[in-house]
């Protein structure tokens, strides 16, 4: 007897869902496997390992960004109330820095290797802190920072802005970045796991990349919409991106991505992909779409596993747990869910 597989089956059988009050701005797992959603109403919803949910008020306006803390547990968030805060797994909220009303803390990042460095962007500035929250330095950019990322070792960070990106050494005493130049408005950034490639999303529906070792430029074009999400696979062989009606996968191996067409997964229904998240261990990508559909795609077999059906709002947040057993997602309409992929005996 065959069983009908509905697109919502995984969510129904293995999911924990909530309808929350605001736009889900982001989701992040800390290194211990606790999850948090940051929302447009300024709240952070903690989902402790084991499944207990707790709502805490972190920002007065909207939360704008969330990242796992550089510590083993907890998160850092930025808000449009000008605050850069730390949220502990017990729900304690403590301010790391306050920049004043109207100074949006738009991007946050933290090292994940135990070095304990935190960073946030406010306008053209990136502020860097040690793990205790003490300011290390502030660096300036030619225009507002639109994306902020640490390399895998936590030694450098990169920020995107108009006409390119800047790569800074955390420990450097001289404040001169490596300038990566390409004319236009760059609106998001990613770094390859080996730290050799920086890729930005551009206003004109394309990606631009730089290989740091030899200065090679990489242009990746053909998107019908802006790319809002970039995610390298763990081994660095593929860069997954949103901005088309499929998951667009650029090969960062075998001489690519230059001169190679991207691989497209889970496409064909005319609805744009809005978020992608590479699995932390396997060659698989989770993707969310503008109609609310969430899927997991196996890169090598191109098999697609539906995770959640369309209809709960455009997917605006997507994150894997560090061990790859849980996938969290949220939507613009305030729907939030965690799906358990772990083996069951």
């Amino acid at each position: 007897m065959s069983q009908t597989i509905t697109p919502d089956r995984l969510l129904e059988e293995r999911g924990e869902t909530r309808t929350l009050d605001g736009f889900v701005v982001g989701a992040a797992y800390d290194r211990s496997g606790n999850l948090a959603f940051a929302l447009g109403d300024g709240s952070v919803h903690i989902v402790r390992k084991g499944g207990e949910w707790q709502k805490v008020a972190a920002h007065e306006g909207a939360a704008m960004a969330i990242a796992a803390d550089s510590r083993a547990a907890g998160w850092v968030t930025g808000g449009d109330d000008g605050r850069f805060v730390r949220v502990s797994t017990d729900g304690t909220v403590s301010a790391i820095a306050e920049f004043g009303m109207m100074k949006w803390v738009e991007h946050v990042a933290a090292t994940t290797d135990g070095k304990g460095v935190l960073a946030c962007s406010v306008g053209k500035a990136v502020h860097v802190f040690d793990g205790a929250g003490t300011k290390l330095k502030t660096v300036q950019h030619p225009s507002s920072v639109t994306g902020l990322v640490f390399d895998a070792k936590g030694k450098r960070f990169a920020a995107s802005h108009y006409n390119g990106a800047s790569v800074w050494f955390v420990a450097s005493k001289t404040d001169n970045p490596r300038k990566l130049e390409w004319k236009g408005s760059h609106i998001g950034i990613a770094m390859s796991p080996d730290g050799d490639c920086v890729v930005t999303a551009m206003q004109e529906n394309s990606l631009h990349g730089w290989r740091l070792s030899d200065g090679q430029h990489m242009r990746m074009t053909g998107y019908p919409a802006k790319t809002m999400a970039l995610s390298f696979t763990k081994n660095g062989k593929w860069l997954a991106s949103s901005g088309a009606d499929s998951i667009v996968m650029w090969p960062f191996h075998g001489g690519g991505p230059m001169g190679k067409p991207p691989t497209e997964l889970a496409g064909g229904d005319g609805v744009n992909c809005t978020r992608v998240a590479a699995h932390p261990t396997h060659d698989a990508i989770a993707a969310g779409f503008a109609d609310g559909l969430v899927v997991m795609a196996d890169i090598n077999s191109a098999r697609i596993l539906p995770v959640a059906a369309a209809g709960r709002g455009p997917i605006s947040a997507l994150a894997w747990s560090p061990d790859g057993t849980h996938l969290a997602f949220g939507t613009e309409a305030g729907f939030a869910a965690v799906v358990d992929f772990s083996k069951r005996s």
């Binding site: 100074k103 225009s143 507002s144 004319k183 236009g184 609106i187």
Partner: peptide, 23 residues
Amino acid sequence: VVDTDEEVFEMNNGCICCTVRGD
């Protein structure tokens, strides 16, 4: 109230008067 710097950039679409406020 949001405080911003007017940040104008030129679109790369070959149109010289096509300038946009990215902020």
